[in-house]
């Protein structure tokens, strides 16, 4: 199939998370008393832990003495607190069948038709939406804060006027490696998301409160900031954490990345045994690897060229992947 004829093509994201704000509390009083977590600035002396060169071995004492003083941000619970609370909102939007920009009318029509066909399928968006729901319920968005928790509870409130409803999830029980055998309340939440993505409902507003019992005085991990500093100042901090008005926080992008970690359809899942975030090339940042290679025609662009122009894809899983990339949004026109 030929390349898509639109040189300008863009989609808005359909899952819109806010930044996540971090609070400290106790497991017993988690619903009544929470305190915003502040960042601490510490000075630490860098240590020498890298392997020394042969010529440096004799100078280890001198090296250790001259190790740089570094300033870093950190964040932790107080000795009274044993539980981290992370709060954010998530907006789910309909309208994936309409690109936000497209400069080819014929393509626009074939695309919209392909998406509408997908929406009418069963399970269609339900499979994708259930996975998003699972990633809210399992607390994947807590990232490193989820590791080694004694207990995790997630509360998801629907805020849409007239449909307010609250659900609790016990995250510890959920399997993070696949999306099989999801609990019924997750499927319930998934069907709300699917209704919106398929356009049966215009938008869905969710409020998520996550409680992770991580233990007294334990470190918590807000997002790290990427400072585009061009100076070589000595006062430069080596680690800057993210805060919202002085309260430790998680970037909305980081939360979004966790929610769309639903791709188990990529080549290599058998081996890796972990879902990866939806990405056109199946790229995984911390592995520096892209699982969906254009050579094997498993990347988004190869599949989208076919799908959007009315050709059938080999597997329904490929359609799931394509639709999930469109939900993520992006600029897909000009040659990448």
């Amino acid at each position: 199939m030929s390349k898509i004829p639109a040189s300008v093509l863009a989609f808005e994201k359909k899952l819109v998370p806010s930044d996540g704000i971090m609070y400290g509390t106790t497991w017993e009083n988690r619903n009544s008393q929470v305190t915003p977590l502040k960042l601490q600035e510490k000075s630490v002396r860098g240590t020498i832990s890298n392997r020394l060169k042969k010529s440096e071995e004799g100078k280890i004492d001198a090296k250790i003495e001259s190790a740089n003083l570094q300033t870093v941000d950190s964040c932790a619970l107080t000795p009274e607190q044993d539980t981290l609370k992370l709060s954010f909102t998530l907006k789910v939007l309909s309208g994936v069948e309409n690109p936000s920009a497209c400069n080819h009318e014929g393509f626009n029509q074939s695309y919209t038709q392909a998406v509408k066909q997908f929406m009418e399928k069963n399970p269609g968006f339900t499979e994708i939406a259930n996975r998003y729901a699972a990633n809210l319920a399992n607390g994947r968005f807590l990232w490193r804060n989820r590791v080694g928790c004694e207990d995790i509870e997630i509360r998801v409130n629907v805020l849409n006027e007239g449909n307010e409803r609250s659900r609790n999830f016990q995250s510890q029980d959920m399997d993070m490696r696949n999306f099989d055998n999801l609990p019924s309340n997750v499927i319930e939440l998934g069907s709300l998301i699917a209704d919106t993505l398929s356009g049966r409902n215009e938008f869905l507003l969710l409020e998520i409160d996550a409680f992770a019992k991580i233990g007294k005085s334990q470190d918590v991990y807000p997002s790290e900031e990427l400072v585009l500093d061009k100076s070589n100042s000595k006062e430069k901090k080596s680690k800057i954490l993210f805060d919202v008005d002085g309260v430790a926080a998680m970037h909305s992008q980081k939360i979004g990345n966790a929610i769309r970690t639903i791709d188990t359809w990529y080549p290599g899942y058998e081996e890796h045994q972990r879902p990866i975030a939806i990405d056109p090339y199946g790229a995984v940042t911390n592995l520096g690897r892209a699982y969906r290679q254009p050579k094997q025609k498993t990347d988004f662009f190869s599949l989208f060229d076919k799908f959007s122009q009315g050709e059938k894809l080999d597997a329904i899983e490929d359609e799931y992947f394509v639709m999930a990339v469109l939900v993520r949004g992006g600029v897909f026109g000009e040659k990448q």
Binding site: S32, Q33, V34, P36
Partner: peptide, 10 residues
């Protein structure tokens, strides 16, 4: 008010 609810219970 933006700090949230319930702080005054402490």
């Amino acid at each position: 008010r933006d700090i949230g609810g319930n702080w005054s219970d402490s």
